[in-house]
Nucleic acid binder design. Structure first.
Lengths: 218, 218
DNA sequence: TAGATTGTTAATCGATTAACAATC
DNA sequence: TAGATTGTTAATCGATTAACAATC
């Protein structure tokens, strides 16, 4: 069972490798990938071990085969169907990226309580009224849910998703959801992320007011 | 110098405490806050120490004063001005949350290259052409930037932000930015977050197909 | 007081990095 | 071969939790 960090890195590696592949077939070294992903070369090699994919000494890793190996590991072949709940500004932004004809990680249904939003297409995805959630989830074999509703409604939505047989939830609402043990939840709080950046912008070890020695010399 | 995790937790605590405060003035115990934030009570107490805020044995922490203490620590009094670059779907979603009359963490200027978007208000925020970035940043004392542009344009935008004197960047583009040492960068990759959830949805230790012993008994 | 919680340090846990023989 | 990189383990580092005297 790989750690969350390992899975995140593998996902990032694959993205970076697609970029390399676009420039033509070739090999990649651990230190090269490490530089792009901001990790150590040893970390990359360790992730390769988790993956079970072997490179060759002095030759590195074959980019195309490595992508295939990561894809197999992340299990994309299953082509998970996802549902998004809460078609507000953030919900629409995510729909615009993950609805439509993407091959993997496709949002196949959106849900909202607003009658002005439901029963029409939004960014290529049909928007259902929320009370249809469980039924649509079972019909379309949806196993991953995305929560983009206000925090006050988040738990209610999570309950409905679990009722519909969800197995993973990406939660953008600033609320700690209570779900059964078999449901995996990941929280992504944009406000917290912004406050963290704002804090370290003004508290980073090196300040603009106190230039480093190199800068002072100039 | 607190860790990133500590700052994230403090931001989350404050959010949770506002919720408690809304129900009336009272005290809160470390285990109560720990339960809401999904950390250990010891973690909460350790964060209080970082904060320099003391509770009383058997009484816990005063919610109102604790909020004030966190706010002082996170340094909101400065009221950081932020700029957002890339007024696409995601950019607009973030503007809708952080532009306008919010007291803290306000986005005061948006930027884009699309002439159909610029030179008008978007969700209460004026949208400038990108080439005005450095000037507007200096005029409005902007020190935090948010990058919501496609990855191919991310580095160029980061360079312009640094040119304008930025000190912190929240980067939504799947690209590892190169910036001077004094600029703090935090990356938030929604695709990676989704792929992680999709992975663990289908690889969580407890499966629906293999009920635990308790479930099997029933 | 007795009971529960805090402040604080030590112990634990996990993730990351360093090191090095094996290998192309 | 010589040089560089890989696979793999040990060492390090940091974050989290456990433990307990002090305290209200």
């Amino acid at each position: 069972m790989p750690s969350e960090k390992t899975v995140e890195r593998l996902s990032l590696y694959r993205y970076l490798l697609y970029g390399i592949l676009a420039d033509g077939e070739r090999n990649v070294f651990s230190h090269e990938l490490a530089g792009m992903a901001a990790v150590s070369p040893a970390q990359v090699r360790q992730d390769m071990m988790v993956l079970g994919y072997s490179g060759s000494p002095n030759q590195g890793y074959e980019v195309g085969k490595l992508i295939a190996s990561i894809t197999e590991f992340l299990d994309d072949a299953h082509g998970r169907n996802m549902a998004l709940v809460g078609v507000g500004n953030l919900g629409r932004a995510i729909l615009s990226n993950f609805a439509g004809q993407r091959s993997r990680l496709q949002i196949v249904a959106a849900f909202d309580v607003d009658w002005q939003i439901v029963n029409r297409m939004v960014h290529g995805c049909w928007c259902y009224p929320l009370d249809k959630l469980s039924g649509v989830m079972r019909d379309q074999d949806i196993t991953v849910g995305i929560i983009c509703v206000p925090p006050a409604a988040a738990q209610e939505v999570a309950d409905a998703l679990c009722e519909g047989g969800v197995r993973g939830i990406l939660n953008f609402a600033p609320y700690r959801l209570q779900v059964p043990d078999h449901v995996y939840v990941s929280n992504l709080n944009i406000t917290v992320a912004l406050e963290k950046v704002a804090y370290f912008a003004h508290h980073s070890p090196v300040r603009l007011e106190t230039p480093s020695r190199e800068e002072a010399k100039v």
